[in-house]
Design a binder for these strands. Structure first.
Lengths: 130, 130
DNA sequence: CAATGAACATGTTGTTCATAA
DNA sequence: TTATGAACAACATGTTCATTG
């Protein structure tokens, strides 16, 4: 799982989403489209809008890695709406992996901010303190 | 040229390098391998090490866009070392483009820092002020 | 139509090979 | 060996199509 925090330039979208999805699943089990909507809303001010495809692929990856477990449910009031949805839960292994991944990603995200701030400093002068 | 500051997740390596290369060419005309060594040294502490291939491809792109002009030279003392190198200069158009690109990239880099800092804040609590 | 998923296509980047001096 | 370049391979991501209730 540590292959996700790849070194090099900036953190990959997949790793970034993985962290968010693990967090969301850890907190309140929801399903794909809902994750999608929440993230979209959160990141819109930052000009970032993850695609549904990328979200699902990340969820599939987490499933393959036995970090999350899937549970099929029917959405809405029974008898009215039979749309099948998939609820995610962290597995026991997943909880451990989440702790670990969270720590790894802290280092990685800090590194990325450092890299970008170096660039900002190099091109636009030192960062101003308020 | 504004297709480089692509929106979405984080800034692309190519755009990042473009800004650095334009700056380096603007300041002191050097050649590919030298850019490479300088950048490598600068970014090593940040775990980032651009490949020679990516550097050259970026230089070629800038050339195609008429932002830089190439000048062939011989390196070292004549008669001793005949290694051919390519010195880059900003064209007149390139100087204008550099100003523009620099401004665009400011917005983009700030956006990326914002995105990352939001993630850091979301996952590890609010950013501490020193 | 909402939700999920996969296929497909494109974009982005790294590794390897080639050539010249 | 250093410098440049291109071919090729691999990975990352987005767009489109398919399916199910």
């Amino acid at each position: 799982m540590n292959t996700d925090t790849k070194r090099g330039f900036l953190v990959r979208q997949r790793a970034f989403l993985k962290l968010y999805l693990m967090k969301m699943i850890h907190e309140n089990k929801k399903y794909g489209t809902e994750f999608m909507g929440d993230l979209d809303k959160e990141f819109k001010p930052y000009g970032y809008s993850p695609t549904h495809s990328e979200i699902y692929k990340t969820l599939h990856e987490l499933t393959r890695e036995n970090i999350v477990r899937r549970e099929k449910k029917l959405r809405g009031e029974p008898g009215v709406d039979f749309q099948e949805i998939i609820i995610y839960h962290l597995t026991d292994k997943g909880k451990e992996e989440y702790d670990l991944y969270r720590k790894q990603m802290k280092v990685e995200l800090d590194r990325c901010v450092g890299l970008l701030q170096k660039a900002i400093s190099d091109h636009y002068g030192p960062i101003k303190k308020k």
